[in-house]
Amino acid sequence: MQRTYFVRAVWDKEAGVFVSESDIIGLHIEAETVDEFEATMRDVATDLVIANHISPEQLETVPLRELIPTIVWERPGPEMAA
């Protein structure tokens, strides 16, 4: 079972927002600032991992410590954070 997921904020020059690149199913973030992006990511990423990557059977049979995901957040460099 995958326990490590990544989230990266990428600047979409055409739209003028940061958008997400991630291997978390269902995660799509668009935000004007990195701080807004990060707040949204922290609010929804874990819930999406639980909803879309862990089966009900796993919730019942696998110890909780083995189900807690690690989310690797790659914040853009300072030149993109403005």
Rank of each mutant, 00 (worst) to 15 (best):
M1N: 09
M1R: 12
M1I: 07
M1P: 11
R3I: 11
R3V: 11
T4C: 13
Y5H: 06
F6H: 06
V7T: 03
V7Q: 04
V7D: 00
R8H: 03
A9S: 00
A9C: 02
D12H: 01
D12P: 01
K13G: 11
K13F: 11
K13D: 13
A15V: 01
A15C: 02
G16E: 02
G16C: 01
V17K: 09
V17I: 09
V17A: 07
F18R: 03
V19N: 00
V19L: 01
S20C: 00
S20M: 00
E21M: 03
E21D: 07
E21G: 05
S22F: 02
S22M: 05
S22W: 05
S22N: 09
D23W: 01
D23F: 02
D23K: 00
I24E: 09
I24L: 02
I25V: 15
G26H: 10
G26Q: 09
G26C: 08
H28W: 12
H28S: 13
H28F: 13
I29Y: 03
I29G: 02
E30F: 04
E30Q: 09
E30L: 03
A31M: 07
A31G: 03
E32D: 13
E36H: 11
E36R: 12
F37R: 09
E38T: 15
T40K: 15
M41A: 15
R42V: 11
R42I: 11
D43E: 15
D43T: 15
D43M: 14
T46K: 14
T46I: 15
D47F: 13
I50K: 13
A51N: 15
A51T: 14
N52D: 07
H53Q: 14
I54H: 01
S55T: 03
S55P: 02
S55A: 01
P56N: 09
P56M: 04
E57A: 08
E57G: 06
Q58C: 10
L59F: 10
L59H: 06
L59Y: 09
T61E: 05
T61R: 10
V62A: 00
V62S: 00
V62K: 02
V62G: 01
L64V: 15
L64P: 11
R65D: 14
R65W: 14
L67R: 03
L67M: 04
L67T: 04
I68V: 15
T70C: 07
I71Y: 07
I71M: 08
V72D: 14
V72E: 14
V72L: 13
W73M: 13
R75N: 06
P78S: 10
P78M: 09
E79H: 12
E79S: 13
E79F: 11
M80A: 13
M80T: 12
A81P: 11
A82C: 10
